[in-house]
């Protein structure tokens, strides 16, 4: 492959890989908002918390795979506890109460990780099997980034299947549409919502562990991803999984090709895209007017 073509192809794959990480974080956020109407500002903090759990699991067991399996589950447990004992109580008071509560939880999580793990950057090593490079059309590309793309696509497929092709998914969608009616049918709606919240935080947890080998685990991790994920959810349309997916990919590609062609504006291109998209479709690309 010609060197300049290889460079553009590589930038495209970088965009996809970053887009997939964005999707993993943003999907949980949009899922929770779409299903429950809760804007969870602690979402990025859960993403960071999972990276710390992953670091700890790896330190204890030496297994990245166990860390990838257990840390998101632990994070989901925290998410469920938050929904069950905190969010549920303020839900009746509207969005303002939820916003304040989730900001408070994110601050507690931030101080909690500092108290437990300190403030230094911690390493989370990728498994040896995912280290190194692979040849793609005469170009070398890191295996780990391809793994991230594959994993995110797999999760999207599973999530879509469950939501749109199973009875469980049907119940969730019905509960979102008319909670009272579903409750009257004998289905435990609060339990359904709690599970949705758990799945949303679990997705953030998966993203936290997945990205940790590329970055370092430190208390600023939440800030690093939080804003980009929020942009994805807003532009994709609150609650739209498809919207989140599409905008994540576009965001990733804007990020990498922006560096290539408009380097000095790379940091703001995503926000320019947001402004343009919202000017055309104020509810987001796939958002629906209530």
């Amino acid at each position: 492959m010609d060197a300049s073509v290889a460079m553009y192809v590589a930038q495209g794959i970088h965009g996809l890989a970053y887009g997939m990480i964005l999707f993993l974080v943003a999907s949980g956020l949009t899922l929770i908002f779409g299903m429950m109407g809760v804007l969870n500002l602690a979402h990025a903090a859960f993403f960071m918390l999972s990276a710390y759990f992953g670091y700890q699991m790896l330190a204890w067991t030496g297994s990245f795979w166990l860390a990838l399996l257990v840390a998101p589950v632990l994070t989901a447990v925290f998410g469920i506890l938050m929904e069950r004992f905190l969010l549920k109580k303020v839900h009746a008071f509207g969005h303002m109460g939820e916003l304040i509560l989730t900001v408070g939880v994110s601050l507690i999580v931030l101080d909690g990780v500092k108290a437990v793990w300190g403030t230094e950057s911690l390493p989370l090593k990728m498994p040896p099997i995912l280290e190194g490079l692979v040849q793609i059309g005469g170009m070398q590309y890191p295996i780990y980034r391809l793994f991230i793309i594959a994993m995110a696509l797999m999760l999207l497929a599973i999530l879509s299947l469950v939501l749109y092709k199973t009875r469980l998914g049907m119940v969730v969608r019905a509960a979102v549409s008319d909670a009272e009616m579903v409750n009257a049918l004998g289905i435990n709606v609060p339990l359904v919502f709690m599970c949705v919240f758990g799945v949303g935080t679990w997705m953030a947890g998966v993203a936290g562990v997945a990205i940790a080998p590329i970055l370092t685990v430190f208390p600023g991790l939440a800030d690093q991803m939080g804003m980009d994920a929020f942009v994805v959810v807003v532009v994709g349309g609150f609650g739209s999984l498809g919207g989140a997916f599409l905008v994540s990919i576009i965001g990733g590609l804007i990020s990498s090709y922006g560096v290539q062609f408009l380097s000095q504006y790379a940091a703001v291109l995503m926000f320019v895209f947001m402004a343009v998209a919202l000017a055309i479709k104020p509810m987001g690309l796939f958002g629906e007017r209530e």
Binding site: A3, S4, M7, A10, Q11, H14, G15, A17, Y18, I21, R145, I211, I214, L215, G220, D223, Q224, M225, D228, S255, S256, Y257, G258, V259, Q260, S263, Q264, A266, A267
Partner: peptide, 19 residues
């Protein structure tokens, strides 16, 4: 090149550097 603080993904910059 100048990148934003606390950048998540350096891959696009590194690809440019390599090229």
């Amino acid at each position: 090149d100048y990148h934003k603080l606390f950048l998540t993904d350096f891959a696009p910059y590194l690809t440019k550097i390599k090229a």
